[in-house]
Design a protein around this nucleic acid. Structure first.
Lengths: 145, 145
DNA sequence: CCTTATCCGGACAATTTTGTCCGAATTAAA
DNA sequence: TTTAATTCGGACAAAATTGTCCGGATAAGG
């Protein structure tokens, strides 16, 4: 469904959101430990998010990553997925046909479009607030126990 | 969403279903041309389907691939996807967490489960009959025009 | 100013996915 | 029986994705 890079991106952003709400800045090491991901690769992914202006980084000692309150409220899963994987997950044809469209549909265009649209809506409606809240309450996990 | 291999598998099966209804056996060359895919790679994918007993092959001159009427009716998208990509598309965690479950959910387990379940149902309900009919009627395409 | 902790960027490496090639086995038809 | 058309299987190659390493830039704190 999503690439590894995108999975790490989402998990990292949720963790950063959680810590940012407490006023903390989170280092790469803490993130990689917290979401159980390869540090160097995670670093690349975070750089993508920073460049796309979805995430703030603080250089130098005691630096790290953080999210402003406005961003925690405003950033959706769709923003993150779009940044890392592009929009083919919720826009592309299920059979990989570039010519597939309403007028020129592949055989399961209609049934698939329904799923894609729901996925798109879900990604658009889910913000970092929603996700990080479940972490706070201990209702959910970001890595294996 | 699906791998290239899986996309080719689905497109090929729809084409074979369409031709099999007319009593024809379809060669690899015809399939690759008909669905606009790399022949040798498509061959590998078809072999997977044959081994999984989802498809019949006829060796030797005038050989090729074909589907019995019973299979055209019985085989669903889920069968094909499961054979080629496994079941992670409609069963796995959206964040790639193996420990994710009802009792130990990742932050967007619930919203994602809804999508996955619908995808699963759609894949289970869609058979080759449905897909090949749309080809017959000229309502849909398997490659670029 | 110096040291230390951190992000950044580029080069590199490993792994997985995608794709190619060729020879062997099989079968229809001349 | 020979030839041609085909699937099958294995080895190989290319490309994409995932992951590592290191040196440079930046900033805090003594």
């Amino acid at each position: 469904m999503f690439s590894k890079a995108c999975e790490y991106a989402i998990r990292a952003m949720v963790l950063i959101a959680k810590e940012s709400k407490l006023g903390r800045t989170v280092s790469l090491t803490e993130i990689a430990t917290g979401i159980d991901s390869p540090p160097s690769f995670t670093s690349k992914v975070l750089q993508m998010l920073v460049k796309a202006n979805l995430l703030d980084s603080v250089k130098g000692a005691h630096g790290g990553f953080r999210l402003s309150p406005a961003r925690i409220v405003g950033i959706t899963l769709k923003d993150i997925v779009h940044c890392v994987d592009g929009d083919s997950v919720y826009l592309g044809c299920g059979l990989g046909l570039k010519q597939c469209s309403e007028k020129n549909p592949c055989p399961f265009h209609d049934s698939f479009k329904k799923i894609r649209d729901e996925l798109k809506i879900m990604l658009e409606e889910t913000t970092l607030v929603h996700l990080s809240e479940r972490l706070d309450s201990g209702q959910s996990i970001l890595k294996r126990a």
